[in-house]
Amino acid sequence: MRRLLAYLGHALRVLTLAGLVIHFALTLLYVFPLNPVKMELGLLTSLTIGTYFPQNWSLFAPTPVQSTQALLVRCLSTEEIPSAESNGLPSEGWEDVSSAHFAQAQRHRLSAYERLVRPLQNSLRQYLHGGPDLYPFHEACRKGDAAACQVRDTALQPRREQAARMFRKIGSAFCREAFPEKDFGAVALRFRERHAVPWSERHGGNPKEEDFELGVFKLDEEVALPGIYAAEGT
C-alpha cells in the first residue's frame, strides 16, 4: 500500500510538471505574434489559454498609442431629434466626456476616475480597431489583401455594434445626470481623435483633430447613473 501511494505521488508530481510545461508552451504560442506554429495550433491555444487563461501584453506594443480618443456627447431634446437626422447635428453644446475624466484622474490619482473611463476608452479602441486579434488583418488589408479586408470587416461589425451600445449607455447616463431638469429624447455621439504632435514638430506644432459621427441614439431611460456628472460632469 505504501509503495502504491509512493508511486501515485511520483506520478502526480510528474503529471503536474508536464502540465506546467505544456501550459506555458501554449501560453507563449498564444501571446506571440502570428507565426507558422501558431497557424497550426491557433485553435488549440484559443480553446485552452484563450478561454481559461486569456492574456494580452500588447499595450504600447508594437506601436504605442499615438492619439487621444474621446467621446463627445450632445444631448438632444425631442424637438432637436428630427433636425439632427435630416439637417445634420447641432454644432454647439457638445461635451467631451473622456477629457473630463482624464483631467479628474490627473488631479486625483488615488480615485476611481482612471478606472471609470476605461469602459469608454476601451470601447472606442474596439470600435476603431476591433482588438489585437484583428491587427494582422488590418496590416494585410493595408497591403492590399482583399480577403483579409473582408475577414476584418466581418469581424469588426459585431464589435462595433457592441461598442456603440456602450456609448449609448454612457452618453445617456451623462445627459440624464448632468441636466436632470431637461427632457431629452436622444443622444448624439461623436468620436474625436486628437493625434500626437509629430516629433519633428514638437516645439511649435499643434495636435491635429479628427471627428467622426457615431450616430444619434434613443436616450436610454433605464441605465444606472454613476453620480459623477451631477455638476455637468465634470
Binding site: P33, F60, A61, P62, T63, P64, V65, Q66, S67, T68, Q69, S98, S99, F102, V117, Q121, R194, A196, V197, W199, R202, P207
Partner: peptide, 19 residues
Amino acid sequence: TGDKWSNGTAMYLISQVEW
C-alpha cells in the same frame, strides 16, 4: 518589432496621449 520603439520616440508619443 515596432518602429516607434526602435527609433526612440515611443515615450515622447505616449507622453502626448492624455489618457
